[in-house]
Amino acid sequence: MTRPPTQRPTPRSDDDQTAPLSTEQPSDQHTDLDLLGTPELVQALLDDQLNAVRAAQAALPDIARAADLAVTRLQHAGRLVYVGAGTSGRLGVLDGVELLPTFSWPPERLVTLIAGGERAMFRAAEGAEDDEAQAVLDLQAHHVDAGDVVIVLAASGATPYAVAAARHATQLGALTIGVSNNPGSPLQAAVHVPITLDTGSEVISGSTRLKAGTSQKIVLNALSSAIMVRLHKVYGNLMVDLQATNRKLRLRALHLTVLASGADPDAARHALHDADGHVKTAIVMLRLGLNAEQARHALTAAGHSVRAVLDAHP
């Protein structure tokens, strides 16, 4: 793994007041926002969200590079580690937690860190984002190492907790990915793969929970989903590695098994029962006429890829 490139834009000092962050600049649009009628107010807020999509699209090459590098680590027992503060930290926790039921991502291979700890998910702990030492302690407490993928989020790109975590994780040899909304930020210089979402000023000036936050959520959706597809947790465009832990998800598992196998619902239901609810196993059983044990063995031998198993048995 190469270290972060040395040729980067000069990082902005945390104390540099001469060049305000673009996300903190007052917007020159809707300067009379508080005078708008409610429909016009909502329209202004919605219209500005489209810029979050454009910013994410502009970052596509970096998102793709981050996904490819992450897969290389995660193919070997590496963990996904999300780090952030405030809104960015909450978005990281949300993305990580949703991987468990959606893609059966093992909980022991997920670490979510937010400045201020778990309580900061529900109540703002703004002072915690300045604690650089705690960021290092949090990484040490979870034994982050060179096998892990660390995704650090900070709209400003200068949040001390986030930047300190990124620097320390990089020093440990972990793959570090930084998602920020200001070009030339300290976070960009601290990570292997910087993803910059240049969303600029907000309709409500300084409120980075708006399109800056939306752009981060878009990137996290795309990045983690792309990683999971590359790790064979999707067959075609079907989510075949979900955890069917409630009635809705059990029905979804049945539907996915029928779609992927071509079997009738009764046959799919019996296969899922024998496969302990595992959609991948049920698909292989039905498509190849195997029992559950044989299907599990075939999947293990093929790196848990349904497509690889089926391609090997035309």
Rank of each mutant, 00 (worst) to 15 (best):
62 D>L: 00
34 D>Y: 10
77 A>T: 08
84 G>M: 00
70 A>Q: 03
22 S>D: 15
9 P>Q: 09
92 G>P: 09
20 P>Y: 07
59 A>K: 04
34 D>R: 07
51 N>L: 14
86 G>M: 10
43 Q>A: 15
32 D>T: 06
71 V>C: 10
77 A>S: 12
39 P>I: 01
63 I>C: 08
65 R>Y: 06
71 V>P: 05
23 T>I: 13
25 Q>A: 14
5 P>Q: 06
57 Q>S: 11
69 L>H: 11
88 S>A: 15
56 A>H: 01
29 Q>I: 14
55 A>I: 01
24 E>R: 02
23 T>Y: 08
22 S>I: 13
15 D>V: 15
90 R>L: 05
16 D>Y: 09
60 L>Q: 13
11 P>K: 08
27 S>G: 13
5 P>H: 02
58 A>G: 06
21 L>N: 04
5 P>N: 10
16 D>A: 11
1 M>D: 13
94 L>M: 14
84 G>D: 02
26 P>W: 08
70 A>F: 05
78 G>Y: 06
7 Q>G: 06
12 R>T: 12
24 E>S: 12
23 T>M: 09
27 S>V: 11
3 R>M: 15
48 D>A: 10
39 P>L: 05
51 N>T: 13
92 G>Q: 07
62 D>K: 06
85 A>C: 02
20 P>K: 07
44 A>N: 06
37 G>F: 00
80 L>Q: 05
14 D>A: 12
43 Q>F: 03
90 R>Y: 03
8 R>L: 11
64 A>I: 14
71 V>K: 02
87 T>E: 04
7 Q>L: 04
13 S>T: 12
57 Q>E: 14
10 T>Q: 09
14 D>W: 09
50 L>M: 09
73 R>K: 12
46 L>E: 07
31 T>R: 12
13 S>L: 15
8 R>G: 04
37 G>P: 05
12 R>E: 01
57 Q>D: 13
51 N>K: 13
25 Q>I: 11
79 R>F: 13
65 R>D: 15
13 S>V: 06
7 Q>C: 00
47 D>E: 12
61 P>L: 07
66 A>L: 03
92 G>C: 10
8 R>A: 11
47 D>Q: 11
59 A>R: 03
58 A>Y: 00
9 P>N: 03
41 L>W: 13
53 V>C: 09
85 A>V: 07
55 A>C: 05
84 G>E: 02
18 T>D: 08
52 A>D: 02
52 A>V: 10
16 D>W: 13
23 T>P: 04
75 Q>Y: 00
91 L>I: 08
16 D>C: 12
83 V>C: 07
67 A>F: 07
57 Q>N: 10
84 G>F: 04
95 D>Y: 01
21 L>M: 13
60 L>C: 02
21 L>A: 13
93 V>G: 07
43 Q>Y: 03
62 D>C: 01
12 R>K: 14
6 T>I: 14
82 Y>W: 03
79 R>P: 14
23 T>V: 15
46 L>G: 03
9 P>V: 05
85 A>P: 00
56 A>E: 02
11 P>W: 11
5 P>L: 09
59 A>M: 05
71 V>I: 06
78 G>E: 05
23 T>F: 10
74 L>F: 12
95 D>H: 06
14 D>F: 11
25 Q>T: 12
29 Q>T: 15
